[in-house]
């Protein structure tokens, strides 16, 4: 069977769902950040696949995927800094134990 746009979009949807499941179920804050990276990757696959199959000569999707990668890098930098700070204050990175602001 010929691999087309729909195959890439389905793969990206499944990968996004896997990352979504990880965000919902992980207790470790670093694990949640990893799941978010999976979701970012799924979005990037979508963008590059649209670029390849819908507008092959415009490169719009590739430009946007570069921006997404940069934003993901910024997100993971700040996120891990926050995780390290939480670990220093609470001696814990499990998000269900960090409930100081919950009533």
């Amino acid at each position: 069977m010929h691999v087309g746009l729909i195959h890439y979009l389905s793969l990206a949807a499944i990968l996004f769902a896997i990352g979504f499941f990880g965000v919902l179920t992980r207790r470790n804050a670093v694990g949640i950040l990893m799941s978010i990276e999976l979701m970012f990757n799924a979005v990037n696959i979508n963008l590059v696949a649209f670029n390849r199959f819908v507008t092959p000569t415009d490169f719009t999707g590739q430009v946007f995927s570069i921006f997404t990668i940069v934003i993901a890098a910024a997100e993971v930098t700040v996120g891990l800094a926050i995780v390290l700070l939480i670990y220093r204050n609470f001696r814990d990175v499990f998000v269900d134990n960090i409930n100081l602001m919950k009533w």
Binding site: Y8, V30, L33, M34, E37, N41, N44, V48, A49, N51, R52, P56, Q62, S65, I66, I69, A72, A73, V76, T77, L80, V83, L84
Partner: peptide
């Protein structure tokens, strides 16, 4: 998908930087 530069950026940023940062954390 014909996006060679994005593939290189993916390896450099995600595999090179983000994964190492995760392992450090």
């Amino acid at each position: 998908l014909g996006a060679d530069f994005i593939a290189a950026v993916q390896v450099l940023i995600y595999v090179g930087a983000v994964a190492v940062l995760m392992i450090f954390a």
